[in-house]
């Protein structure tokens, strides 16, 4: 009985959170450094997984200051991602 519950629970989590498609945007100096304004990632399992894949693709970004926004909101903690979230890498602002 317990086993079944756990299994159902896992299936549920799998449907919600595993193998997500996430759009990642780069701005300012980071668009220049990565050579792109954005990249679409498939099969993302978590925010940590996404960050690793981004840093594998664009290792130079770790040398820059940036904050990360999820769906236009700057995050401070590691967020739970949902399918079709938009992630943005934001260098220090310079408006005005």
């Amino acid at each position: 009985m317990t086993g079944e519950l756990v299994k159902t629970g896992l299936k549920h989590i799998n449907r919600l959170n595993l193998n997500m498609e996430i759009n990642v945007l780069f701005f300012g100096v980071l668009a220049e450094v990565t050579g792109t304004s954005g990249k679409y990632y498939r099969g993302i399992k978590s925010f940590g997984d996404l960050r690793h894949r981004i840093e594998d693709d664009f290792p130079e970004i770790v040398h820059y200051n940036f904050r990360i926004a999820v769906n236009n909101e700057i995050i401070n903690d590691e967020p739970l991602l949902s399918p079709d979230d938009e992630i943005a890498y934001l260098p220090p602002f310079a408006g005005g």
Binding site: G28, A88, P91, F93, A94, G95, G96
Partner: peptide, 27 residues
Amino acid sequence: AVELIKEKLPIWKKEIFEDNSEQWQEN
């Protein structure tokens, strides 16, 4: 409002010099 604009709006600027070289700036 001006202070908040400089602090909060995700806008970036690149200075372009007379010799066509460039440099990113931040507030």
